[in-house]
Nucleic acid binder design. Structure first.
Lengths: 173, 173
DNA sequence: GTCTATACCAGGATAGAC
DNA sequence: GTCTATCCTGGTATAGAC
């Protein structure tokens, strides 16, 4: 991965996240990256390929976070860490997550498998704690994570109070 | 509003919701509506104007739902109805909501004022019930609503169990 | 690996007839 | 109110030189 390649990816991420994939032209990406437009196609085949390159980079980091939580053995602690997730994401990764969430709403690109393992491990945790509907509880946690992430990404950091009161409802404080 | 005008709006909503605003060409809208492309511009000025026409139509119905909830006097019941909201949306309105949520992620178009009144009235309800952080609680309800709506719109109807367990956490069953 | 030049097409939008 | 024809810009993508 050359320096220019990285510059292209970085610029594209910036623009895709802010204006959307379809509304961002390759010429704008090239200009922002300080690179000729042709170079983008040399390196990434086409615009779609550029998007894929961005996604692959980010997905790896994301699954990293998820695996950290999955390997926590104490059920209560695992749930607590999952709920805390959207509050811990580093601001430098905001653009990536914004792109992911925006893309969810675009035909075809929706893929939840990334988070499936996490959900399963949360269901197990709720089960171990004797909850009545462990799978639905895991789903609720995910709804909460997505909801808070959305709020944080669109309006700036979500309030810590939100985490406090949700943890309270689970008696995890 | 002529029949063709309505046909244009309907077709555009369908396509915008499925493929996104930027990825949908006016020619595709025209074809789907069985109408000449020029007619779109006669009636709606430009593509943006077509989007606005769609939004205005839907926003009215949406504020209708919100106002129904706001005017409930009993605090507990008001909260309960708000939480139930994403489970009550008629399927015929799915496309509209999908468009709204997708547009949230597009630069500039994000506008939360529609839901602001609801949030305020929820904060009052939590306050009346003696909660410690009424505003944060109202925020959490909105996070829940958005999260469930997202899940329902992207993967099909959300499970009723989700509602059941959340109502349980508020002791509203 | 990178740039310049360019092909080619599709997109939004307008004009003018009916 | 509606259609047909057309303009023009800008978007993706390729070719070829360095």
């Amino acid at each position: 991965m050359t320096e220019k390649q990285e510059k292209i990816i970085w610029s594209a991420l910036e623009l895709f996240a802010e204006f959307g994939f379809d509304a961002t032209s390759t010429s704008k990406v090239a200009k922002k990256a300080g690179v000729s437009e042709g170079l983008i196609f040399r390196h990434f085949e086409n615009k779609e390929g550029l998007l894929m390159a961005i996604m692959n980079q980010g997905i790896e980091r994301a699954t990293g976070y998820f695996n950290e939580i999955i390997k926590i053995n104490d059920p209560a602690e695992r749930i607590k860490q999952a709920l805390s997730l959207p509050f811990l994401i580093d601001e430098s990764e905001n653009r990536f997550w914004k792109l992911i969430y925006a893309l969810k709403w675009q035909r075809g690109s929706y893929d939840d498998s990334m988070a499936d393992e996490l959900k399963k491990s949360l269901a197990e945790a709720f089960n171990a704690l004797g909850y009545d509907h462990p799978y639905a509880e895991a789903e609720l946690v995910q709804v909460f994570i997505d909801g808070v992430a959305t709020e944080a990404l669109l309006k700036g950091k979500a309030s810590e109070q939100l985490l406090e009161i949700i943890l309270n409802k689970y008696r995890l404080t």
